[in-house]
Design a protein around this nucleic acid. Sequence first.
DNA 1: TAAGCGTGGTA
DNA 2: TTACCAAGCTT
Length: 364
Amino acid sequence: MMTSTKLNAPSATPLLAWYDRHHRDLPWRVSPPMAAHGVRADPYRVWLSEVMLQQTTVQAVKPYFADFLARWPTVRDLAEATNDDVMAAWAGLGYYARARNLKKCAEAVATHHDGVFPDTEDGLKSLPGIGDYTAAAVAAIAFNRQAAVMDGNVERVISRLYAIATSLPAGKPLMKQKVALLTPADRPGDFAQAMMDLGATICTPKRPACSICPFRGSCEALRLHDPEQFPVKAAKKERPVRRGAAFVAVTADGEILLRRRIASGLLGGMTEVPTTAWTSRADGETSADAAPFPAQWEPCGSVIHVFTHFELRLSIYRTAIPSRIQTDDKWWEPVTNLEAQALPTIMKKAIATAIPLAFAMPKG
DNA sequence: TAAGCGTGGTA
DNA sequence: TTACCAAGCTT
């Protein structure tokens, strides 16, 4: 006789058992056996990794994490660094407001908290760049607080476990409630990391490996035979195209003209070559007419770069001049020193288009 | 609440 | 190739 499948009530226990066996080894992480002996990860490392991991893959973060930790081993070291050095070290990782807030947060901890991170969610959340997720993650992982950690992975796992059909972000409060009920008092940090590991390796967006999932006996979405339909997300919007021109000027001495972007907004505080405005207008300025100074500007290609909310198509112009030309709000930088600059990826692409060996030149 | 905010990997 | 997406925060 056919009977309906009976689900067990979800519990942290099988997840933690799975985590003990299958957890990922990551540079900022304390392994479960160590954690079981009361060893906690350094709050500075947990915070640094969590900020870097916001909307960013583990693979992309690893080299940046190692570099930051080597250069600034403690939060005080980071607080005493220059903004330029921090922005240059962050260059390429994206979402540069994170780097600006990282520096502000380090300064706040050093100045107002005696160099010690707050050990509560509320205390952490009051710091720059720390929101709901990061506050809960640091509180749970570094301080063993019973905080409900909810990121994209957890949203996916929870929405499937309970077959929550409410779309995101509207369904988030209900999901957070479910996570809070599931979070154990004894191993909250391991639980949070286990949920994220599960989301990253088993409960994946496409083709989840339900047959080996520790929640397979409790998952409502699996019982419905369609885990991929969760979580339900709002429809995405189309990505408009903007156009502009970028100008690469190089002197006979091998110096390139650079400038600093304004401190806020897109690529805020980062370094760039002079460009026109980036406009969605079909008749937008993309010619050499708007160059930073009169010269023989030669078109040398184009760069397409996809940002989160628009696609940028930059026409690249270059000129070679005998010596520096006086400009305001700009400076000349040796091409051999570009690696030390806070150049976002789009600008490295633009420069590499005009000077193919710009990032392959030996230093000094 | 919705929009703004990067980049590189993957299917 | 196009589209999606990866440990979100701020305004």
